[in-house]
Computed example of a mutant assay.
Amino acid sequence: MKIHWGFVSLLCALPVVAGIAGGWNIEIVTQTLQNISDESTPRPVSICQAVASKPQAIPVVPAAGDPLNKEQVRISFIGHSTYLIETPQGVTIATDYNGYAGDNEPPQVVTMNKAHSSHFTLQPDPAIENVLPGWNPNGGPVDHDLVIGDTYIRNVTTDIRSGFGGREPDANSIFIFEVAGLCIGHLGHLHHELEDRHIAQIGRLDVLMVPIDGGLTIGHEKMSDIVKRLRASVILPMHRRGGSIDAFLKLFGSDFAREFSTDSSMTVTLRDLPKQPTIIVLNGV
């Protein structure tokens, strides 16, 4: 398993949760920090930032389950802020992974954020090949740019709230997954409005996973402003915290469609994206 960004110092970086760590049940790969930050390694090219060429893919063995054609991406709601993304080549990705990714084989990739313990785990399954933290335990921003199979994964860092009304810079990551021509974004545990620089770094989004708790992240009104600004075709709510979803939905006018699915999964293709921005509430949200 590749543990990116030197998790060897994670316990020092997370004193609040150090008592529950109990040690990592993983083999620390000490060279990954050097490999990720190696300036001599060419960066993949983002199709979501209006650049035409596509990164070279690394073949992988397709995952078990219903096969997807080369245009299809399956997205399944697992719980809280965890979605499982399955790509045409069988790459499986669990977002804001807290140790549970459903009754499936361990995903090949997990992303994590540290604002709350329900968004990460200190003991990821050893079978997970790529663990991508949304923060740098050594301080400063974390920078993920990697291609796994047919998927390019990158991140845009934001701040999180810290004690006494302060901020911890670059401690949350918005992860962007570029696959099958689609740009899929996950806001993580977002604590503040996005600046112009964040919007530019994110680029085009076709699918957006957005927290709708209305307080633990940011309020419904500001979150709806972010959704409108990012202009994704498909909006997938997550991180619901009790109550009705109506408080979030009522902030969108008739220019946004709304769908409530009886299924916890959906298949997305670039050619079949809705012409009208659509908020789709998957079963379980």
Rank of each mutant, 00 (worst) to 15 (best):
G284I: 06
D66T: 13
A180G: 10
L270T: 08
I153Y: 01
G215Q: 09
N130R: 12
A63C: 13
Q276A: 10
D125F: 00
P237I: 10
S46M: 05
F164D: 03
V110S: 09
F175H: 04
T30W: 10
G22W: 12
V285P: 02
A63P: 06
L187P: 12
K70E: 11
I202P: 12
I28L: 11
F260R: 15
V147T: 14
T32W: 07
G242C: 06
S117I: 12
P44Y: 04
I148C: 04
V45L: 06
L194P: 05
H144T: 06
L146E: 10
R167V: 13
D196W: 14
E129H: 03
V109T: 01
T111F: 07
I58R: 06
F256E: 00
T111N: 00
G188C: 07
C183N: 07
V73S: 02
D66Q: 12
A115M: 13
W135A: 00
Q123P: 02
L205S: 01
S254Y: 09
V179S: 08
I212K: 02
P126I: 09
T278Q: 03
Q49P: 09
F252Y: 08
C12R: 13
M209Q: 15
D225S: 09
L122S: 09
P44W: 02
M223K: 05
H220F: 12
V210Y: 04
E39M: 09
P44C: 02
E259Q: 15
E221I: 11
Q31V: 14
M209E: 13
P67D: 02
F252G: 07
V234H: 00
G188Y: 12
Q49H: 15
G243Y: 00
A18K: 09
L251T: 10
A247H: 14
W135H: 09
L33G: 15
D196G: 01
A200I: 13
T32E: 15
Q108L: 12
I184L: 11
V147L: 07
P141I: 12
G253M: 02
L208P: 04
G163E: 14
Y100V: 13
P237F: 06
D150Q: 05
G163V: 11
S40G: 10
P137D: 00
S264G: 05
P126V: 04
P42N: 03
D196N: 08
E27W: 09
D213F: 01
H186G: 00
A257C: 05
M1P: 03
D103G: 10
V210R: 02
T158P: 03
N172A: 06
I202S: 07
E193F: 10
T32K: 07
A13G: 05
I174F: 04
E178R: 01
L84V: 03
V16E: 11
A101G: 07
I3R: 01
F175R: 00
T121S: 10
R271F: 03
D255S: 10
A13W: 14
I128F: 01
N155R: 02
S254L: 06
G90D: 02
G203V: 04
